[in-house]
Lab assay of single mutants.
Amino acid sequence: GATAVSEWTEYKTADGKTLYYNNRTLESTWEKPQELK
């Protein structure tokens, strides 16, 4: 079967924080998503 690919993209901001963006739900979060833990 196909492996579930994470929908989350990780961005590094200018101040060194990490922003997570979900390509499916168009949601963005500063918290690390469950799927990435």
Rank of each mutant, 00 (worst) to 15 (best):
G1R: 14
G1M: 13
G1P: 12
G1V: 12
G1F: 12
G1Q: 13
G1A: 13
G1Y: 13
G1I: 14
G1E: 11
A2V: 13
A2R: 11
A2S: 14
A2H: 11
A2F: 12
T3F: 10
T3H: 13
T3R: 12
T3N: 12
T3K: 13
T3S: 15
T3D: 12
T3W: 06
T3G: 12
T3M: 13
A4R: 12
A4D: 12
A4S: 12
A4H: 12
A4F: 09
A4M: 13
A4G: 14
A4K: 11
A4E: 15
A4P: 12
V5A: 14
V5C: 15
V5L: 13
V5W: 11
V5N: 11
V5Y: 13
V5I: 14
V5S: 13
V5H: 14
S6Y: 07
S6L: 09
S6K: 08
S6R: 07
S6Q: 13
S6T: 10
S6F: 08
S6H: 10
S6G: 11
S6M: 10
S6A: 13
S6W: 08
S6D: 10
E7L: 05
E7M: 05
E7D: 13
E7V: 06
E7Q: 06
E7Y: 07
E7A: 06
E7F: 07
E7R: 03
W8K: 01
W8E: 01
W8H: 00
W8G: 00
W8R: 00
W8V: 01
W8Y: 02
W8M: 01
T9R: 08
T9D: 04
T9S: 10
T9V: 14
T9H: 09
T9I: 14
E10C: 15
E10W: 08
E10R: 02
E10L: 05
E10H: 04
E10A: 06
E10T: 07
E10I: 09
E10V: 08
Y11T: 07
Y11I: 15
Y11L: 15
Y11P: 00
Y11E: 04
Y11C: 15
Y11N: 04
K12Q: 11
K12W: 08
K12C: 12
K12Y: 10
K12P: 07
K12A: 08
K12T: 14
T13N: 08
T13Y: 10
T13Q: 10
T13D: 11
T13H: 05
T13P: 01
T13S: 08
T13G: 09
T13K: 03
T13F: 12
T13R: 03
A14T: 09
A14W: 05
A14P: 13
A14Y: 04
A14I: 10
A14V: 10
A14N: 07
A14D: 09
D15M: 05
D15W: 04
D15G: 06
D15P: 00
D15L: 04
D15V: 02
D15Q: 06
D15T: 07
D15R: 02
D15N: 08
G16P: 00
G16E: 01
G16H: 02
G16N: 04
G16T: 00
G16L: 00
G16K: 02
G16S: 01
G16I: 00
G16M: 01
G16A: 01
G16Y: 00
K17N: 06
K17P: 00
K17G: 04
K17I: 03
K17Q: 08
K17S: 06
T18E: 03
T18I: 15
T18H: 04
T18S: 07
T18W: 05
T18P: 04
T18V: 12
T18M: 04
T18G: 01
T18N: 05
T18Y: 08
T18L: 09
L19F: 15
L19H: 05
L19P: 01
L19D: 03
L19W: 15
L19K: 08
L19S: 03
L19I: 14
L19E: 05
L19A: 07
L19N: 03
Y20N: 02
Y20Q: 02
Y20D: 03
Y20V: 00
Y20S: 00
Y20F: 05
Y20I: 00
Y20L: 00
Y20W: 12
Y20E: 02
Y21P: 04
Y21T: 06
Y21A: 02
Y21G: 01
Y21N: 02
Y21K: 06
Y21E: 05
Y21W: 10
Y21I: 15
Y21D: 03
Y21C: 14
Y21H: 07
N22Q: 01
N22T: 00
N22Y: 02
N22M: 00
N22R: 00
N22H: 03
N22E: 03
N22A: 00
N22K: 00
N22F: 00
N23F: 08
N23W: 12
N23M: 09
N23S: 14
N23H: 12
N23G: 06
N23L: 09
N23Q: 11
R24M: 14
R24A: 12
R24P: 03
R24K: 14
R24I: 15
R24H: 13
R24D: 08
R24Q: 12
R24E: 09
R24W: 08
R24G: 07
T25F: 01
T25P: 00
T25M: 02
T25A: 01
T25I: 02
T25K: 00
T25N: 02
T25L: 03
T25W: 01
L26I: 02
L26E: 11
L26R: 13
L26P: 01
L26M: 15
L26H: 15
E27F: 02
E27M: 04
E27W: 00
E27N: 03
E27V: 06
E27T: 05
E27H: 03
E27Y: 02
E27D: 04
S28W: 15
S28K: 12
S28V: 15
S28I: 15
S28D: 03
S28N: 05
S28T: 14
S28Y: 15
S28H: 11
S28G: 05
T29A: 06
T29Q: 11
T29S: 12
T29P: 02
T29E: 02
T29R: 10
T29V: 10
T29K: 06
T29W: 05
T29G: 03
T29H: 07
W30P: 08
W30M: 10
W30K: 07
W30N: 09
W30C: 12
W30H: 09
W30V: 07
W30Y: 15
W30I: 07
W30D: 10
E31G: 03
E31M: 04
E31W: 04
E31S: 05
E31K: 04
E31T: 07
E31R: 04
E31V: 09
K32A: 08
K32Y: 04
K32C: 15
K32F: 04
K32N: 06
K32G: 02
K32I: 10
K32P: 10
K32D: 04
K32L: 09
P33S: 01
P33I: 02
P33T: 02
P33D: 01
P33N: 01
P33Q: 02
P33H: 02
Q34G: 09
Q34F: 11
Q34D: 15
Q34L: 14
Q34N: 14
Q34R: 05
E35K: 05
E35L: 05
E35Q: 07
E35R: 03
E35V: 05
E35A: 11
E35H: 08
E35P: 04
E35S: 09
L36C: 06
L36R: 06
L36E: 08
L36A: 07
L36T: 08
L36I: 09
L36Q: 07
L36M: 11
L36S: 08
K37D: 15
K37M: 15
K37E: 14
K37H: 12
K37Q: 14
K37F: 13
K37G: 14
K37I: 15
